[in-house]
Write a protein that binds this DNA or RNA. Sequence first.
DNA 1: ACGGAATATTCATCATTCGGAATATTCCAA
DNA 2: TTGGAATATTCCGAATGATGAATATTCCGT
Lengths: 136, 136
Amino acid sequence: MNTGDLYLCLAESDRLRIVNLLAEGPLCGCHIQNILSLGQVKISKQLAYLKKLGAVNCDREANWVVYRLSEPVDPLLAENLRLLRLRSPGLAEDLKNRAGFLAGIAHEEKPAPEPVQKQCCIAMRFCHEKNNKDTK
Amino acid sequence: MNTGDLYLCLAESDRLRIVNLLAEGPLCGCHIQNILSLGQVKISKQLAYLKKLGAVNCDREANWVVYRLSEPVDPLLAENLRLLRLRSPGLAEDLKNRAGFLAGIAHEEKPAPEPVQKQCCIAMRFCHEKNNKDTK
DNA sequence: ACGGAATATTCATCATTCGGAATATTCCAA
DNA sequence: TTGGAATATTCCGAATGATGAATATTCCGT
């Protein structure tokens, strides 16, 4: 991915929010949809866009499609995410919702594909306050 | 300027090159044109775009229009320029050409508006090797 | 007033992006 | 094999962006 494309990933707010989430670990499309409260089509299109740019890749796992940032993550991207999280509370908020959502689905029988499920355990430990509405 | 617009400034290579030059100090459109060897219309349009985003501003000085980065320069922009210069030799090259060009016009009777002219003195001191073709 | 230098704008075209709505696909479970 | 969940695609219209050619404007010097 060239630097121009890298900046395109960050130049649109919904795209940035998705990249911000995926930087913490892989997620399925429906999880992103839940965490960000955005429509399915918008999520799917932005993911396709990011995939075209080479920023993310995915593989199907049964009913789900697991999305991840393409490795290795460009240090320029990582540094920008770090700086952006410091300045825009929304991004930090999204990360909290991410942990909350993962913790919320951790108890379900088959909550998510393995790579996502692994994070649920972590989220359980770090997200004791319930801060997303899907937690039952 | 919001962060999305900031990244738009960096997402196109010609635009990035212009911002990179202006980060070192104000320049006229024709100077940018010379340093980057790009067409007048393209320069003018990208400058208009950057002005629309709020990244640059300008004021007319006789026949010239002096462009500057809008103050204060966002630290996020500055940091990205710093990192980009380390990874893309082209940007560092442009800066050398910038210094070479300014040194080259330093001896002319009326080389440029005052804000640009001031940098010519600096360029004279720092640019002893002649690395641009306009130097006569 | 005229010519030239520096800059801006218009026009036409092509490609990209975006939005919403609708529909299609893939997979699993029962 | 039918249904539902997750995801992708298509269609459409509106908006934006880039390019190149041509033209317009602004200003200065003479």
